[in-house]
Design a protein around this nucleic acid. Structure first.
Lengths: 229, 229
DNA sequence: ACATTTATTATGTAGAACATAACTACTAAT
DNA sequence: ATTAGTAGTTATGTTCTACATAATAAATGT
């Protein structure tokens, strides 16, 4: 093995420009609305072709960090975090470990929103939630049951009043379905039903609700336990 | 206001190609390792210049969805979810609402990992955690106290055995610091200290721990309550 | 059969050219 | 003088061509 040899930056120019630009943005402490140099200026400053600069800028445009307008030039803008997440959230090409991790992450969230729920819940919310839980009981079709299952949990997130959280969980839903499907297991509900949870939310304490939710999710936690290495 | 007017697709070619490619990947149900057509073929098929295709592909390369090797061409690969998240997680240019939302999301996670912790905790982990908590007490310097505070909570995530979760929380740390700074508030700890938490983790039940953690984070939850609209 | 050299191929980079939208400034008409 | 219209300017958007480069395959010679 030869020593003292640098592997050279096998990174492409576009990638290196991306890094440079990111440092540049931070160093200048740019805020949304702040104008950027022109593509030509950047290319000249970085000593690369305009083409490479555009490839790097294209990346920032995808993230929503940079917006471009003709003539006026480019400006910094505030990115859509969850939207970006959506672009990589493709269960089909994700490795299984990450899928399992995200599955657990969702379980943690599900348990963790209890306190937020008790801070934000309103009577109106509870009525709507109750209606979803009730609708579920009448439904025979399995597909409808699943979409109702999703509706219930989504409503819970909505009740936290935290839009980012709600959007985030809706991105995790496919993961949930995918992991379940991978194991070819049927969706097993815990002892505590959705209707029970609504009741607790109405009259019970936060602690009651946490217990109830844990019980509701117990089958999933059992799965996690069985995977423990 | 004029009605029935479409805003035209103000999308750039690169953006539209990105969308087309994403559909194409899904439709062909590509898996990691699967080869892609050449840039020239894609350009021809889409009826755009190779340059535009490259800008779109550059985006996928950033996400880690596509990898390119000279001569052999491009292949699909599994993206690094958290790594992508890192690229947009820039508190400086994020809007305040999202920052608040993410702050809450972290609180929810902090509360939600309790059950995972009790599934995965080991004696060795507890010893290490205890050591961090102990080190903290001896420290006078405020900067060190904060980095110790971070170390403690990071260790908790590490103990879940969920690497994605751990990496995810470490990305949320800057948010935490930023939000705190925004309000110019000092970091106030709850009544339950880190050392208390360790004790509970050792001898107490999951419920005890959840109570303890809630108490520990109470100042933050109070803040959330006060922001309730 | 093996090593060496020679094509071949697809990505990486560069540069020029022109289209296009938006903004500025000037001009002409009432 | 105000307004409408026109021409000019500028930075992004798009295309095309050319060539460099690395990895692979094919061909060649010993």
């Amino acid at each position: 093995m030869v020593n003292g040899i640098k592997p050279i930056s096998s990174r492409s120019m576009a990638e290196r420009v991306e890094i440079s630009l990111r440092e540049y943005f931070a160093q200048k402490s740019f805020k949304p609305g702040d104008p950027l140099p022109t593509e030509l200026e950047l290319a000249a400053a970085l000593g690369v072709s305009r083409n490479v600069v555009r490839e790097a800028l294209s990346r920032f445009k995808m993230l929503g960090i940079v917006e471009a307008k003709k003539k006026s030039g480019m400006v910094i803008s505030n990115p859509d975090i969850v939207g970006t997440f959506e672009k990589v959230m493709t269960p089909e090409i994700m490795d299984e470990t990450t899928l399992q991790d995200l599955f657990e992450l969702r379980l943690a969230l599900e348990m963790g929103i209890a306190d937020l729920l008790y801070i934000h819940k309103t009577e109106k919310d509870l009525d709507e939630l109750e209606e979803i839980a009730a609708r579920e009981m009448k439904e025979k079709d399995n597909n409808f049951r699943i979409s109702n299952e999703i509706a219930f949990h989504s409503k819970l997130y909505e009740m936290t009043g935290n839009n980012t959280l709600k959007r985030f969980q809706s991105l995790l839903l496919p993961i949930f379905g995918y992991v379940i499907k991978l194991e070819k297991k049927k969706v097993i509900s815990g002892k505590v039903t959705h209707q029970d949870l609504v009741k607790i939310l109405r009259k019970g304490t936060v602690e009651d609700f946490k217990e109830g939710m844990l019980s509701h999710l117990q089958p999933h936690f059992d799965r996690v336990k069985s995977f423990k290495k």
